[in-house]
Amino acid sequence: MEERMEISDPAQYKALGHPLRHRLLMAIGQKPATISQLARALDQRKGNIAHHMDVLYTAHLVEIAESRTVRGGTEHYYQRAARRLTFNNPEATPVMVRAVADDLAAGEEIGGRLRTVRLTAEQAREVTAAIEELIDGLEDAGDDTERYGLLAAVWKPRPAGTS
Protein backbone atom coordinates (compact mmCIF):
# COMPACT_ATOMS: atom_id res chain seq x y z
CA MET A 1 0.00 0.00 0.00
CA GLU A 2 1.30 3.43 -0.94
CA GLU A 3 1.54 6.10 1.76
CA ARG A 4 -0.14 8.83 -0.32
CA MET A 5 -1.98 9.00 -3.64
CA GLU A 6 -2.96 12.18 -5.42
CA ILE A 7 -6.40 11.89 -6.97
CA SER A 8 -6.15 13.20 -10.52
CA ASP A 9 -7.94 10.83 -12.89
CA PRO A 10 -11.55 11.69 -13.85
CA ALA A 11 -12.52 8.06 -13.16
CA GLN A 12 -11.25 8.48 -9.60
CA TYR A 13 -13.35 11.61 -9.08
CA LYS A 14 -16.37 9.81 -10.47
CA ALA A 15 -15.71 6.83 -8.19
CA LEU A 16 -15.52 9.16 -5.19
CA GLY A 17 -18.83 10.80 -6.10
CA HIS A 18 -20.92 8.27 -4.15
CA PRO A 19 -21.13 8.44 -0.34
CA LEU A 20 -21.11 4.65 0.11
CA ARG A 21 -17.74 4.49 -1.64
CA HIS A 22 -16.35 6.95 0.91
CA ARG A 23 -17.69 4.73 3.67
CA LEU A 24 -16.06 1.71 2.03
CA LEU A 25 -12.71 3.49 1.79
CA MET A 26 -12.93 4.41 5.46
CA ALA A 27 -13.92 0.86 6.40
CA ILE A 28 -10.83 -0.63 4.74
CA GLY A 29 -8.52 2.20 5.75
CA GLN A 30 -6.42 0.20 8.17
CA LYS A 31 -7.46 -3.41 7.78
CA PRO A 32 -8.35 -5.34 4.60
CA ALA A 33 -11.87 -6.76 4.41
CA THR A 34 -13.98 -9.01 2.19
CA ILE A 35 -17.23 -8.10 0.45
CA SER A 36 -19.14 -10.11 3.08
CA GLN A 37 -17.39 -8.38 5.98
CA LEU A 38 -18.05 -4.96 4.46
CA ALA A 39 -21.70 -5.79 3.79
CA ARG A 40 -22.20 -6.75 7.45
CA ALA A 41 -20.27 -3.76 8.79
CA LEU A 42 -22.15 -1.25 6.62
CA ASP A 43 -25.55 -3.01 6.70
CA GLN A 44 -25.69 -3.33 2.91
CA ARG A 45 -26.39 -6.13 0.43
CA LYS A 46 -23.30 -8.02 -0.78
CA GLY A 47 -24.21 -7.29 -4.43
CA ASN A 48 -24.33 -3.57 -3.71
CA ILE A 49 -20.96 -3.67 -1.94
CA ALA A 50 -19.46 -5.76 -4.75
CA HIS A 51 -20.61 -3.23 -7.37
CA HIS A 52 -19.15 -0.26 -5.50
CA MET A 53 -15.89 -2.09 -4.72
CA ASP A 54 -15.57 -2.89 -8.42
CA VAL A 55 -15.90 0.82 -9.24
CA LEU A 56 -13.21 1.66 -6.66
CA TYR A 57 -10.98 -1.16 -7.92
CA THR A 58 -11.35 -0.05 -11.56
CA ALA A 59 -10.41 3.51 -10.51
CA HIS A 60 -7.29 2.10 -8.75
CA LEU A 61 -8.45 3.37 -5.36
CA VAL A 62 -8.53 -0.11 -3.82
CA GLU A 63 -6.44 -3.19 -4.41
CA ILE A 64 -6.63 -6.84 -3.53
CA ALA A 65 -4.43 -7.46 -0.51
CA GLU A 66 -5.02 -11.21 -0.35
CA SER A 67 -7.17 -13.91 -1.96
CA ARG A 68 -8.15 -17.30 -0.67
CA THR A 69 -10.35 -20.17 -1.77
CA VAL A 70 -13.48 -20.62 0.32
CA ARG A 71 -16.09 -23.31 -0.45
CA GLY A 72 -14.98 -23.56 -4.08
CA GLY A 73 -14.97 -19.80 -4.66
CA THR A 74 -12.36 -17.09 -4.37
CA GLU A 75 -12.66 -14.55 -1.58
CA HIS A 76 -10.74 -11.29 -1.94
CA TYR A 77 -9.57 -9.05 0.88
CA TYR A 78 -9.58 -5.44 -0.28
CA GLN A 79 -7.50 -2.57 1.04
CA ARG A 80 -7.09 1.04 0.01
CA ALA A 81 -4.44 1.59 -2.63
CA ALA A 82 -2.95 4.33 -0.43
CA ARG A 83 -3.15 5.22 3.23
CA ARG A 84 -3.95 8.83 2.41
CA LEU A 85 -5.73 10.29 -0.60
CA THR A 86 -4.93 13.88 -1.52
CA PHE A 87 -6.90 16.21 -3.75
CA ASN A 88 -4.94 19.07 -5.26
CA ASN A 89 -7.51 19.94 -7.92
CA PRO A 90 -9.61 22.89 -6.71
CA GLU A 91 -12.70 21.26 -8.21
CA ALA A 92 -12.28 18.23 -5.92
CA THR A 93 -13.43 19.78 -2.65
CA PRO A 94 -17.07 20.33 -3.71
CA VAL A 95 -17.18 16.73 -4.99
CA MET A 96 -15.84 15.47 -1.65
CA VAL A 97 -18.18 17.63 0.40
CA ARG A 98 -21.25 16.42 -1.53
CA ALA A 99 -20.16 12.80 -1.16
CA VAL A 100 -19.45 13.12 2.57
CA ALA A 101 -22.59 15.16 3.39
CA ASP A 102 -24.90 12.13 3.73
CA ASP A 103 -22.45 10.33 6.01
CA LEU A 104 -21.96 13.47 8.09
CA ALA A 105 -25.73 14.00 8.42
CA ALA A 106 -26.26 10.38 9.54
CA GLY A 107 -23.30 10.28 11.91
CA GLU A 108 -22.71 11.67 15.36
CA GLU A 109 -21.06 15.07 15.13
CA ILE A 110 -18.31 15.47 17.68
CA GLY A 111 -17.37 19.02 16.84
CA GLY A 112 -17.11 21.43 14.00
CA ARG A 113 -17.00 25.04 13.08
CA LEU A 114 -17.87 27.10 10.03
CA ARG A 115 -16.49 30.58 9.88
CA THR A 116 -15.86 33.21 7.27
CA VAL A 117 -13.04 35.61 7.91
CA ARG A 118 -11.19 38.21 5.88
CA LEU A 119 -7.67 37.01 5.04
CA THR A 120 -4.96 37.88 2.59
CA ALA A 121 -4.13 35.21 0.00
CA GLU A 122 -0.91 34.53 1.94
CA GLN A 123 -2.81 34.05 5.21
CA ALA A 124 -5.20 31.63 3.46
CA ARG A 125 -2.20 29.60 2.23
CA GLU A 126 -0.71 29.59 5.75
CA VAL A 127 -3.97 28.40 7.32
CA THR A 128 -4.27 25.68 4.68
CA ALA A 129 -0.69 24.54 5.34
CA ALA A 130 -1.31 24.47 9.11
CA ILE A 131 -4.47 22.38 8.68
CA GLU A 132 -2.67 19.96 6.36
CA GLU A 133 0.21 19.64 8.83
CA LEU A 134 -2.20 18.92 11.69
CA ILE A 135 -4.14 16.31 9.69
CA ASP A 136 -1.02 14.66 8.27
CA GLY A 137 0.47 14.44 11.77
CA LEU A 138 -2.44 12.49 13.25
CA GLU A 139 -1.52 8.92 14.15
CA ASP A 140 -4.04 6.10 13.88
CA ALA A 141 -5.04 4.89 17.36
CA GLY A 142 -5.44 1.26 16.27
CA ASP A 143 -8.10 -1.24 15.35
CA ASP A 144 -9.84 -1.32 18.77
CA THR A 145 -10.76 2.37 18.68
CA GLU A 146 -13.63 4.10 16.93
CA ARG A 147 -13.23 5.67 13.51
CA TYR A 148 -13.86 9.36 12.95
CA GLY A 149 -14.16 11.31 9.74
CA LEU A 150 -12.32 14.58 9.37
CA LEU A 151 -13.07 17.17 6.71
CA ALA A 152 -11.24 20.49 6.57
CA ALA A 153 -11.25 23.07 3.81
CA VAL A 154 -10.32 26.67 3.22
CA TRP A 155 -12.18 28.29 0.38
CA LYS A 156 -12.88 31.67 -1.14
CA PRO A 157 -16.66 32.19 -1.29
CA ARG A 158 -18.20 33.18 -4.57
CA PRO A 159 -18.90 36.92 -4.74
CA ALA A 160 -22.54 37.85 -4.10
CA GLY A 161 -24.65 38.03 -7.22
CA THR A 162 -22.61 35.48 -9.24
CA SER A 163 -23.56 31.95 -10.06
Rank of each mutant, 00 (worst) to 15 (best):
T145A: 13
T34F: 08
R84V: 14
H76L: 09
A121S: 13
G161D: 02
A160R: 13
A11N: 14
P10V: 04
K14A: 14
R80C: 06
G73I: 07
L119V: 14
I28Q: 02
H22Q: 13
E132R: 11
R125P: 06
D103C: 02
T69D: 12
Y57Q: 13
T162R: 14
Y77T: 00
G29Y: 02
D102N: 09
D143C: 00
E133G: 12
K156D: 12
R80S: 05
N88V: 04
P159E: 09
G142A: 06
V70F: 14
G107Y: 04
E3H: 12
R71H: 15
A141G: 09
L56I: 02
L42W: 08
A82D: 00
W155D: 15
G112I: 00
R125E: 15
A59D: 08
A129Q: 15
A50H: 15
Q37C: 04
M1D: 08
E132Q: 11
T93D: 05
E66N: 10
K14F: 10
R4Y: 09
D143I: 10
A105Y: 11
A41V: 00
T145F: 14
D143N: 07
P94Q: 01
R40D: 14
N89A: 14
A153I: 06
R45W: 07
D43C: 01
R158K: 08
V97H: 07
R125D: 15
E126A: 12
N48K: 11
L24R: 02
K31M: 04
A99C: 05
D43H: 08
S67Q: 14
V127P: 03
T162E: 15
A82T: 01
E66V: 06
H76V: 01
T145I: 03
A152E: 09
V127W: 08
L42I: 06
E109I: 08
R23I: 00
V154K: 01
L85K: 02
A152G: 13
V127F: 05
N89T: 07
Y78W: 12
R71G: 12
A99P: 06
E91V: 02
R4C: 11
E132T: 07
L61A: 10
R71P: 06
S8M: 10
A130V: 00
V70K: 13
P19H: 08
S8W: 06
G111H: 03
L56Q: 05
D144L: 11
V154M: 02
E132S: 06
A99G: 13
A105N: 13
L134D: 13
R4K: 15
H60C: 07
A141R: 14
Y77P: 00
T86L: 09
Q12A: 09
K14M: 07
E109Q: 11
T162V: 11
K31H: 08
S163Q: 13
L151H: 10
T34N: 11
A99E: 05
A59T: 05
L114P: 01
S163V: 07
T162A: 14
N48Y: 13
D43S: 06
P159Q: 03
A152N: 11
K156C: 07
S163E: 15
Q30V: 10
H22S: 04
L134K: 11
T120R: 02
I131M: 12
F87P: 11
G149V: 00
Q123P: 03
D54A: 11
Q12T: 02
T128D: 12
V95T: 15
D43N: 08
E126S: 10
I110F: 09
A81L: 04
R113N: 13
T128C: 06
A99H: 02
E66H: 15
